[in-house]
Structure formats: C-alpha cells, structure tokens
Design a protein around this nucleic acid. Sequence first.
DNA 1: GACGATGATTGCCG
DNA 2: CGGCAATCATCGTC
Length: 237
Amino acid sequence: MLLAEGVSGPEKGGGSAAAAAAAAASGGVGADNSAEHSDYRAKLSQIRQIYHTELEKYEQACNEFTTHVMNLLREQSRTRPISPKEIERMVSIIHRKFSSIQMQLKQSTCEAVMILRSRFLDARRKRRNFNKQATEILNEYFYSHLSNPYPSEEAKEELAKKCAITVAQVSNWFGNKRIRYKKNIGKFQEEANMYAARTAVNAANASSHGSQANSPSTPNSAGGYPSPCYQSDRRIQ
DNA sequence: GACGATGATTGCCG
DNA sequence: CGGCAATCATCGTC
C-alpha cells in the first residue's frame, strides 16, 4: 500500500518519483481536474515527508538508546560478568520495541493515505451543480408530468442527452426531486406554477401554429407520455 | 462561518 | 432491480 502510494520505498529524486507513483496508483482519476489532482499530490507528498522524518527520528532514537544501554552494560560489566549473549538479547529487545513503534507509524501513515485517497476518489466531494439549462429541462419534465413523474428509460436517456449528464444522474435527480417535492409541496408551489404556466404557453404556441400538439423538442415527445397539461390542482394559497 | 439547496451514496423494501 | 428515505459532502448565498 505505502509502496504503491510512493510513501514508503526507496527515496529517489526528492518527490517526483513519488508523484509519479501516486499518479499511477490513483489510476482512473488521471483525467480529472488538474488543480485538484496537484492538491492531492501535494498532500500525499506531505504525508510522505512526515513519514520519513518521523521514521528517521525513531531510527536515531533507537540508535541512541542502544548505545546508551550498551554503555550501561559496559559499566556493569566491571562489577559483574555480562555475557555477549545477554548484550545481544538486550539489543534485540530494543530493536523489536522500536520496530513495533515504526510499524505503528507505518500503519497510521497508511490510514492517512487511505483517507486522503478516499476523499479524492469520492464523487460526492467533487459534486458540481448542474447548469441552469439542465435544471430547467429537468424541472420542465418533472412539473409537466407531476401526476406521474417517473420517466421511462428512453425518456431518461433523452433528458440525459439534452442536459449533457448521465442517465444515472437523471435518475438521481428525479429520485431527489420526487422525495423533496413530496416532503414539502408548499416550498415548490411557486416553481410548480411557473413551470406549469410555461408548459401551458408552450403547448398553446405549438398548437396555434402547428398541426401537432407536441413540439418535437418537448421531452415528452419521446417517452410516450400524454401531452402536457396544466396542473390546476396546485394553487397558491 | 452559518445555513439552505443540491447532487450522490447507502440501506432497505416490495 | 427501481424507488424511497436518510444521510453525506459540497456548493452557493448571505
């Protein structure tokens, strides 16, 4: 893991290797916003640097402590016999202790990288609002099908194409819209009336100078839904 | 910076 | 599997 992220492993060329490794490891998000990407890389290299300085610190502390203990043992060897085996045992205990600390450091670094990675990869964190036109199109469909706001797969595809978003996003949008509309109809009244009126105007225009009741550009022309109707049951109180 | 709006995710249900 | 409900995380506004 740490090796893959370029945090652990041989240090060559101060960071560029790590950045490359990180870029490779994060595969799939490469074609993303470069600003965010460089932010990710910066944070990763920061983690990496902290890891290395800490590791070095522990290494140094371990060596210092070892020599200190050795000195103590040498001191004691004057008053009592101390076998080389005993010294070796002591040293290995110290090393074990310090290496377990280093393992902990490694683990916490690993966790930090994981969190950073999940933050970077989580789509929710890169959420962008749809543009105005897309929202208009979606709302128009929603309010002109208020009695049955469940677009078919084809209708969803049509909407997705028009709004330049994915079908999944259209589904998400309708899911959110239905639940939020239902939860607080009052809040959406104004919006509902506005779109209903607009749809009515569109329908009137279309029928006044055309043989068809539905304009070809109206979303419901593809989904097999009935022609747009004014939702007179939603009134401002 | 608090707060509402909003897109996305998760877990559950029929 | 699609939809609902709750929730998360960010955006946009004040």
